[in-house]
């Protein structure tokens, strides 16, 4: 049975789309047939991060309205066999989404894929609500700062009360916390919330900590999901998160300040 995963946060700019692209690609890399769906109608970004923006013909709204079939609209990734992207419409807004249409598309995706990743827009309105409504699991992306934590908390409340599982009284959505843009140095200085602080406030299971990294911006601009950059700390951290999502027990990395090496201290080199 396919799993519907929503990547959500409440707050904008915390890394939902980067995470959707990385986690989706990671699952496909491990042999699971995965589709990533962009719910951010009107502010389409996922195709850019995935590097398939030049191949978008039909989008999510076209499928909902019956203008195109799902097979026509799904964009196959050029790097990975098992990876597909369903782009959002750039010319419409969130009102073009409706619950029946989304359900129809999700059900059709469930028949053909092992994982469906729903990339939620920011906010708690219609787009975000529909992105999480049919979810089985949720990855709540949070930055280590108070406003992001508060918005994530609000989103967790909605996941627990406004999803299909909640409304039908079924087993609740499984919630995972993904802390992104983490900078251990600034945590030590007291400028940023630490992992423990965020975990304590949100009290959900920690899926991973993605360190703040130059690699993320570079990857976004090149249209390559950062998880494919195996040299980068962010890529490795996302890799660990995917393994944890699949049930492996892996210790968290990148939580402590890197001690500069002997030569670095000597020559004051920068990484």
């Amino acid at each position: 049975m396919a799993k519907i995963l929503v990547v959500t946060s409440g707050k904008g700019g915390v890394g939902k789309t980067t995470t959707s692209a990385a986690i989706g690609t990671g699952l496909a890399l491990r042999g699971h047939k995965t589709a990533i769906v962009d719910f951010d109608v009107g502010l389409r970004n996922l195709d850019l991060i995935m590097g398939c923006e030049r191949r978008v013909v039909y989008d999510f709204i076209n499928v909902i309205n019956g203008d195109a079939t799902l097979t026509q609209a799904l964009i196959k990734d050029k790097r990975l066999e098992n990876l597909y992207v369903l782009a959002a419409s750039q010319t419409r807004d969130k009102d073009a989404l409706n619950i029946e249409g989304v359900e129809k598309v999700i059900n059709e995706l469930k028949e053909n894929f092992e994982y469906v990743i729903c990339d939620s827009p920011a906010g708690i309105e219609k787009g975000a609500h529909l992105a999480m409504y049919f979810a089985d699991e949720a990855i709540v992306v949070t930055n280590p700062e108070v406003s992001s934590v508060r918005d994530s908390d609000r989103m967790l409340g909605l996941l627990a009360s406004k999803s299909r599982r909640a409304e039908n009284g079924e087993e609740p959505i499984k919630e995972h916390l993904l802390l992104t843009r983490y900078n251990p140095e600034r945590v030590t200085k007291g400028e940023m919330l630490g992992v423990e602080d965020v975990e304590e406030i949100l009290s959900i299971r920690l899926l991973g900590v993605i360190p703040e990294s130059q690699a993320v911006l570079k990857a976004s601009n090149q249209g390559i999901p950062v998880i494919l950059d195996e040299q980068s700390d962010a890529g490795q951290a996302y890799s660990d998160a995917v393994d944890r999502l699949l049930g492996k027990e892996i210790a968290h990395r990148f939580l402590d300040v890197k001690k500069p090496g002997f030569l670095q201290r000597l020559f004051g080199g920068r990484e």
Binding site: R154, G157, I201
Partner: peptide, 21 residues
Amino acid sequence: RGGQQVYAQGGDLIVMAAVSP
């Protein structure tokens, strides 16, 4: 969670978990 409201009408309210801002 933040934004949620729980009312125990006519009685006591017992919460066995964290109450968010």
